[in-house]
């Protein structure tokens, strides 16, 4: 479904702040596969996700989604294939718009927007049912401004928006990192439910080793802009946090993960 070939990205090239964020990354994700991405700060995890989402274009390499070469497509055109949830709960929704308006915007992702109604009556009913599945009581607050919701509620809503139209690829960028542990667990549960329901091809960044091990079919570890570990199948199922730390230490030549990663 996703085919990333040898992509490179350098920020601030030619200055003292030059940073080679992606250094020849290649990864292939099969249809319906879900992958957890881990790595220390500055390893290139978010850069990889942003490269796929098209926040900027890569310096080298190609990216294709479902057989379509998207390497040079702008972000808003790639959005036709991609559902995204960001780390910052503020980023995925429009705070000054209503819950139902946000969902209606997401329902039109990748479609031509013309002079049809921004939201229809039939849609409202559909959204009410979908919101009910979140079990957050949002189905009774459909005309409330999203800005009034808590961080966890916003992330759950963003998840719903990202999957409202089945995306070819779901990108989750540490989407529970800004939440308290209890809310984070709940949002992770919602993620699992939605991903399993639609068999979504997913790329999820996490700082949480446990989440990375429990979640998904495959685990990728990044260091210094490269993929240093790629564990799948039975091997992944047997993995423990201790294994992972040990293997990371070997793969990265003795470097340690950030404190945050070790503590979690």
């Amino acid at each position: 479904m996703l085919d990333v070939k040898n992509i490179c990205k350098t920020f601030n090239a030619g200055t003292v702040n030059e940073k080679r964020a992606l250094n020849g990354v290649s990864v292939h994700i099969n249809d319906g596969e879900s992958i957890a991405v881990i790595g220390g700060n500055g390893a290139g995890k978010s850069t990889l996700l942003n490269a796929v989402a098209g926040v900027w274009t890569v310096d080298e390499g190609t990216i294709s989604i479902g057989g379509v070469d998207v390497t040079h497509l702008p972000e808003h055109k790639r959005a036709a294939y991609i559902g995204r949830v960001f780390q910052d709960p503020m980023m995925g929704t429009a705070a000054t718009m209503q819950i139902e308006e946000n969902l209606a915007l997401a329902a039109r992702r990748g479609k031509k927007r013309g002079f049809r109604a921004g939201i229809t009556k039939a849609e409202r009913e559909e959204y009410r049912e979908l919101l009910r599945t979140l079990d957050l009581g949002l189905e009774n607050r459909m005309t409330s401004k999203v800005g009034l919701l808590s961080g966890g509620q916003r992330q759950a809503l963003t998840l719903l928006m990202a999957t409202l139209q089945k995306p070819k690829l779901l990108l989750l960028d540490e989407h529970t990192a800004a939440l308290d542990p209890k809310t984070a667990a709940k949002v992770m549960e919602t993620t699992r439910t939605l991903v399993n329901r639609d068999r979504l091809t997913t790329l999820m960044i996490t700082h949480n080793m446990k989440d990375a091990i429990e979640y998904g079919d495959r685990l990728i570890m990044m260091n210094e802009g490269k993929i240093v570990l790629d564990i799948a199948g039975e091997e992944k199922q047997k993995l423990t946090v201790e294994d992972l730390l040990a293997r990371f230490s070997v793969a990265s030549g003795g470097a340690m993960l950030s404190d945050k990663a070790i503590l979690s």
Binding site: H76, K77, A79, F86, L105, R109, M161
Partner: peptide, 9 residues
């Protein structure tokens, strides 16, 4: 950011 992620030019 949200607008672009929802495919809005």
């Amino acid at each position: 950011n949200m607008a672009r992620a929802q495919g809005i030019n």
